[in-house]
Amino acid sequence: MGKPLPMALRKRVAAFVDEGNSNREASRHFRVSPKFVNDLMKLRAERGSLEPRRQGHGTGGGKLAAHADFVRQRMAENGDLT
């Protein structure tokens, strides 16, 4: 997954739209996707902030978290999983 665009760009895009320009004009002017501008304006309306949402799946620990004990035990016994 890519990194969020910088806050400076987010602020400039939002200010451009606030000046009365359309979302599509902002996307052309700043060379970003129209979806980014639409999502940015929707984010600001919902949360009152331009900060990007957190990326990832939270603190689940990953797909192998449920098998961590088995993996550690197996590595301690054999030094290898294969």
Results as ranks from 00 to 15, higher is better:
Ala8Gln: 14
Arg10Glu: 04
Lys11Met: 10
Lys11Trp: 05
Arg12Thr: 09
Arg12Ala: 15
Val13Gly: 04
Val13Met: 07
Ala14Gln: 08
Ala14Gly: 04
Ala15Tyr: 01
Ala15Phe: 03
Phe16Gly: 04
Phe16Trp: 06
Phe16Glu: 05
Asp18Ala: 15
Glu19Cys: 09
Gly20Glu: 01
Gly20Ile: 05
Asn21Lys: 06
Ser22Asp: 11
Asn23Phe: 09
Arg24Gly: 01
Arg24Cys: 08
Glu25Gly: 03
Ala26Pro: 02
Ala26Asn: 05
Ser27Gln: 03
His29Ala: 14
His29Arg: 15
Phe30Tyr: 12
Phe30Thr: 02
Phe30Leu: 00
Phe30Cys: 03
Arg31Gln: 15
Arg31Glu: 14
Val32Glu: 10
Ser33Met: 09
Ser33Asn: 10
Ser33Arg: 01
Lys35Cys: 11
Lys35Asp: 13
Phe36Asp: 03
Phe36Lys: 02
Phe36Val: 02
Asn38Phe: 11
Asn38Gly: 14
Asp39Lys: 11
Asp39Thr: 10
Asp39Arg: 13
Leu40Cys: 02
Leu40Lys: 01
Met41Gly: 05
Lys42Glu: 13
Leu43Cys: 12
Leu43Ser: 14
Arg44Met: 11
Ala45Asn: 14
Ala45Val: 08
Arg47Met: 12
Gly48Pro: 00
Gly48Gln: 13
Ser49Tyr: 08
Glu51Gln: 12
Glu51Ala: 14
Glu51Leu: 12
Pro52Asn: 04
Arg53Pro: 07
Arg53His: 09
Arg54Met: 02
Gln55Arg: 15
Gln55Glu: 01
Gly56Lys: 00
Thr59Ala: 14
Gly60Asn: 12
Gly60Cys: 05
Gly61Gln: 06
Gly62Ile: 05
Gly62Ala: 05
Gly62Arg: 05
Gly62Pro: 14
Leu64Ala: 08
Ala65Gln: 13
Ala66Trp: 02
Ala66Val: 07
His67Arg: 15
Ala68Cys: 10
Ala68Phe: 11
Asp69Lys: 09
Asp69Asn: 12
Gln73Ile: 03
Gln73Pro: 03
Gln73His: 09
Arg74Cys: 04
Glu77Trp: 08
Glu77Pro: 00
